[in-house]
Design a protein around this nucleic acid. Structure first.
Lengths: 147, 147
DNA sequence: CATGTCGATATCGTTTTGATAGTGACTTCG
DNA sequence: CGAAGTCACTATCAAAACGATATCGACATG
């Protein structure tokens, strides 16, 4: 796959960082509170080689931050950066789609810890308040782009 | 990568179908109105072998539908299914993250065709109205799961 | 000092990707 | 009529990524 990072489309640019299932699942687990190499490895059943690569890439790209939590023995952990924390809505949007189209019994669910109601994610346009997909969109390519 | 389709987590299940950059970009282009093999190929710069595979997988998984648009010569196109149409919020959530964290000038933008305002996607919990990530969440694994 | 912990790397076979060329069923142009 | 073009798609094959397993290095613990 070519490098998507310098495409004009922000979806493509974002996918350059997180456009594979492992990275997404690592972000999910990071949001669930996992921080350590072995926690991710056991949770995901991922080969350590791949995990090393993915964690390094996510750190490099600013979604995770590597932090030393023990000097002796030297031990590192991975915590969500501000950008990583902002990624949660993407995960919920994906989960919401799955809830509608891939559901069955025996599925993990999410509740508001205070009200106890099940989380029901909707992505809306802040300006109009309308859910995405319910109103016509105009796509505007950057000035000076081809086509 | 193992098969994510039967995991209890709906994020993982969804990523089993769409957890790679090409599939996501095909969905993006399908929402932009592309339907034909060659349109996707030229837009994405993807090798035809891969495109065939991805289109077949997305069709198999119910995100696209294959439709014959000409009998002679025999020609097929790919249109969004209901499930595929519902995927748009995911793409906008990813784009919104990119807008905040990967932006620069020369970026494609999206406007409400009627009001003319730029789309500013926020994912909220329909029950509480609060943006995802602003309130504590309780994760509930399915009954009878390990751990 | 043997064993365990834990974040990693080494090795190496398998799988997936990607570039390029070609095919089949037509239509259209000259 | 024949040559050239369109378009969805397959064949081939080298290169890259993945994944399983073993191992390392720096320590702590029994």
């Amino acid at each position: 796959m070519q490098n998507l990072s310098d495409q004009p489309c922000l979806i493509a640019r974002s996918l350059a960082l997180v456009g594979d299932a492992w990275s997404m699942l690592i972000m999910r687990d990071a949001h669930a509170g996992l921080t350590r190499f072995d926690e991710f490895r056991k949770s995901l059943g991922i080969a350590p080689t791949i995990l090393t690569r993915r964690l390094a890439a996510l750190t490099e790209d600013g979604l995770l931050e590597k932090r030393r939590y023990s000097e002796r023995p030297p031990r590192e952990e991975y915590v969500l950066s501000a950008a990583g924390l902002d990624f949660l809505p993407v995960l919920f949007a994906i989960g919401a789609w799955g809830r509608k189209h891939r559901s069955s019994d025996g599925v993990t669910r999410f509740f508001d810890a205070e009200t106890g109601t099940e989380i029901d994610p909707v992505t809306i346009d802040r300006a109009t308040g309308a859910p995405i997909g319910t109103r016509p969109i105009r796509i505007v390519p950057p000035a000076g782009s081809a086509a």
